[in-house]
Design a protein around this nucleic acid. Structure first.
Length: 208
DNA sequence: CTTCAGATCACCT
DNA sequence: GGTGATCTGAAGA
C-alpha cells in the first residue's frame, strides 16, 4: 500500500499532523489489533536535542532512524517500547513518535495484553505498544507492510488539532518548549489529558 | 484530583 | 556506572 501521509517532500511536523486519524494495524498469530492515532510527536534529527540522533549520533540502537521514510524505529526503555516512523529520505534521521491510539479492532486482545480497561488501555506510548503487541521484532521493518502497518484508507479527520510541548523532555533548551506534539482535541485517549471529552471523540462526522 | 518515587534494563560512555 | 521520548501505585491537597 502507498501511504499518502508519508510524503518525503513534506516536513516532519506536517507528517506528524497528517498521521493523526490514520489506522495502525498489527497482525499477530493471536489475531488482529488496530486503532486510530490520536497523538504524535515530531523528532527532528541531528539538530533536535531531544532526539536520539542529536548531533549526528549513530549507534546500532538508532540505526533504523537513518533508513528511508516509512521505516519503523522501536525504542525500548524501562521495559517499555515506543513506536516511531521515519519520515525523510535515507540519511536524514527525522521520525514521528506515535504516542496514543483509540482502539478499533481486537480490543479483547488488548485487554489480555494490558490487564487494564477504558482509556488506560492505550493512552500512552508504552501502553499502546504493549496493548498491540509491538516489540523489538518490529524494529527496522516498513510501515507499509505486514505485520505492522498503517491503513490510511479508513482515515478519520480530527475536528481540531492542538500543538503543545513534547512530554518528558526537560532541560533541552528551546526544544523543551517547542510545540512538536500534536493531539486530537477532545479525544479521551490522548495522554496526560485534562479537560473534557468532545462528542464524536474529536473526530469530524463522516459525510460519505 | 495531583505529585512523586521506584521499578528495571538496554544501551551508551 | 549512568541515563532515560515511561508506567504505576501510593500518598498528599
Amino acid at each position: 500500500m502507498k501511504l499518502n501521509e508519508i510524503d518525503q517532500h513534506k516536513s516532519t511536523e506536517e507528517i506528524a499532523k497528517n498521521l493523526l486519524g490514520c489506522l495502525v494495524v498489527k497482525e499477530t498469530e493471536a489475531g488482529k489489533v488496530s486503532g486510530w492515532i490520536v497523538e504524535t510527536e515530531a523528532y527532528l534529527g541531528v539538530e533536535d536535542e531531544a532526539a536520539h540522533t542529536f548531533n549526528g549520533r549513530k549507534t546500532p540502537r538508532v540505526a533504523a532512524m537513518y533508513e528511508t521514510a516509512g521505516t519503523v524505529y522501536i525504542y525500548s526503555m524501562h521495559t517499555h517500547h515506543m513506536l516511531n516512523i521515519v519520515t525523510q529520505p535515507e540519511g536524514i534521521p527525522h521520525a514521528v513518535l506515535i504516542r496514543a491510539i483509540e482502539p478499533f479492532e481486537g480490543e479483547d486482545l488488548m485487554l489480555m495484553n494490558r490487564q487494564k480497561q477504558g482509556v488506560e488501555l492505550t493512552n500512552g506510548p508504552g501502553k499502546m505498544t504493549k496493548a498491540m503487541g509491538i516489540n523489538m521484532s518490529d524494529n527496522g521493518t516498513n510501515i507499509e507492510e505486514k505485520p505492522l502497518y498503517i491503513n490510511d484508507s479508513l482515515k478519520k479527520i480530527p475536528q481540531v488539532i492542538e500543538a503543545s510541548p513534547r512530554i518528558g523532555i526537560p532541560n533541552k533548551g528551546i526544544w523543551t518548549e517547542e510545540p512538536l506534539r500534536y493531539t486530537v482535541v477532545g479525544n479521551p485517549y490522548v495522554s496526560r489529558k485534562r479537560g473534557k471529552v468532545s462528542v464524536d471523540n474529536g473526530w469530524k462526522t463522516v459525510l460519505k
